[in-house]
C-alpha cells in the first residue's frame, strides 16, 4: 500500500518537475532580459558580444538550447539535466549542483528549527484558546494569529537586529551576534557532513562551534517563528474550536469519557490538517526566506537565487527552481505519509 502510494506520488512528482523545468526554461527566455549584455557590459563590441553569446550557447535556437539543457542530442560539451548535471554558473563558473548542495542545507536547517518551534508553541496556545473560547487567552491568541499571520518578516528581522544586537550592546547586555553569517570567523567550522551546522558540530564533537552556531541561529529562527507561528496558531485554534463542537466530541462526553480522554480525542483530530499547513510553509519558505537570509548573511539557497536572478544567470535560476521544487515535493510526500498515519480516512 505505502510503497504503491510512494511510487505513484514520485511518478507524479517527476511529471511536475518536468513541467516546472520547461516552464522556467521558457519563462526566463520570453522575458526581455539580456544576460549577455549583463556579462560583457553595455560598451562591449559586437564581436565580444557575439563571442560571449556563443560561449553561453545563447546563439542557438530555443529548441536546441532546451536539448542542450536536457542533455539529449546536445551539440555542446558536458551533460544535461537528464544525466544529473545542472550545468555551470555563468557568473562563478562553478557546477551549479555543487553550489546548491552547499547552500540548500543552510536554509533547510533554519526553517526546520523555526517550523518545529512554531508548531510546539502553537499547540498549547491553540489548546488554551479553544477550550475557553472568548476568554483572555483566546482573544490574545486570536489577535496574535491575525496579526503575525501576515507581517513583513524582513522588517521584523531588522528590528530584532537593532534591538538585540545594537541596543543590547549599547546597554552592555549580553547581546545577539552581529548578523554576519552562521559562525564567528574565529570559530573553526566543523567538517560538513549533513550541512546542518548544529548536527555537524555535534558529530565532530566541536561544542564551541555548536554553541556559536546556535547563538547565530537564534535571531533568524526567532524571526521566522515570529511570522510563521501566527498562521499555525490561527489554523489550530479554528480546528480545535470546530472539533470541540463536533458530534463525536459531544458524543464522547455523553458517553462519559473522562475529560483528559476527550482532550486527546480533540487534539488528534485538530492536529492532522495543521500538519499539512506546516508542509506548505516548508515549500513556501524554501524560496521565500530570501530576505531573512540576506539580513543575517546566512548564505542559503535564497541568497543564491537572488544573486543568480539579478545576474541573469539562466542555468543557476533553472537549477535553483528545480531543486527547490524537488525538495518541496519530497516534503509534501513525507507530510502526507505522516498525515495518513494519524488519520485513517486519508488513503494511499
Amino acid at each position: 500500500m505505502l510503497l504503491r502510494f510512494v511510487t505513484r506520488r514520485l511518478a507524479v512528482a517527476i511529471i511536475q518537475l518536468i513541467g516546472i523545468s520547461l516552464f522556467v526554461f521558457f519563462m526566463i527566455r520570453i522575458l526581455p532580459a539580456d544576460p549577455v549584455a549583463r556579462l560583457v557590459g553595455l560598451n562591449a563590441t559586437k564581436e565580444a558580444y557575439d563571442l560571449a553569446a556563443h560561449n553561453l550557447g545563447l546563439d542557438q535556437p530555443w529548441g536546441q538550447q532546451l536539448l542542450n539543457y536536457l542533455g539529449i542530442y546536445s551539440n555542446r560539451p558536458g551533460d544535461g539535466v537528464l544525466q544529473g548535471d545542472l550545468g555551470d554558473s555563468w557568473v562563478t563558473s562553478a557546477p551549479i549542483l555543487e553550489e546548491l548542495v552547499r547552500f540548500l542545507p543552510i536554509t533547510l536547517e533554519f526553517i526546520t528549527y523555526a517550523l518545529l518551534i512554531a508548531f510546539l508553541i502553537a499547540v498549547p496556545m491553540a489548546m488554551a484558546a479553544a477550550t475557553k473560547p472568548g476568554k483572555t487567552a483566546d482573544r490574545v491568541t486570536f489577535v496574535w494569529g491575525l496579526f503575525a499571520g501576515a507581517q513583513p518578516e524582513f522588517w521584523w528581522g531588522l528590528m530584532f537586529v537593532f534591538f538585540f544586537f545594537f541596543q543590547f550592546h549599547e546597554w552592555g547586555f549580553p547581546s545577539a551576534p552581529a548578523p554576519l553569517g552562521r559562525l564567528n570567523p574565529m570559530v573553526s567550522e566543523p567538517h560538513t557532513i549533513t550541512g546542518f551546522i548544529l548536527i555537524d558540530s555535534l558529530l565532530a564533537g566541536n561544542f564551541r562551534a555548536f554553541l556559536d552556531g546556535a547563538h547565530h541561529l537564534m535571531l533568524p529562527v526567532f524571526t521566522l517563528v515570529f511570522v510563521v507561528s501566527g498562521a499555525i496558531i490561527k489554523m489550530l485554534r479554528q480546528n480545535m474550536i470546530r472539533v470541540l463542537q463536533s458530534d463525536y466530541i459531544l458524543y464522547a462526553r455523553s458517553a462519559g469519557l473522562p475529560s483528559r480522554q476527550v482532550g486527546f480525542y480533540a487534539m488528534r483530530a485538530a492536529m492532522a490538517p495543521a500538519m499539512t499547513l506546516v508542509g506548505i510553509f516548508y515549500g513556501f519558505l524554501l524560496g521565500g526566506a530570501v530576505p531573512i537570509e540576506l539580513i543575517y548573511s546566512l548564505g542559503g539557497i535564497g541568497e543564491y537565487s537572488i544573486r543568480s536572478i539579478l545576474a541573469f544567470d539562466y542555468p543557476a535560476i533553472q537549477g535553483t527552481v528545480l531543486i527547490i521544487a524537488m525538495v518541496s515535493l519530497l516534503i509534501y510526500l513525507v507530510i502526507d505519509i505522516l498525515h495518513a498515519a494519524i488519520d485513517p480516512r486519508v488513503t494511499f
Partner: peptide
C-alpha cells in the same frame, strides 16, 4: 460523568459523525 455512559446510555442521530474518525 460517571453516570453518563454507565447508568444512562445515549445514542444519537448522525451515527457516523458521532464516532471519532481516527480511532
Amino acid at each position: 460523568r460517571k453516570l453518563r455512559g454507565k447508568d444512562i446510555g445515549m445514542i444519537v442521530q448522525n451515527p457516523r459523525y458521532s464516532l471519532h474518525p481516527m480511532y
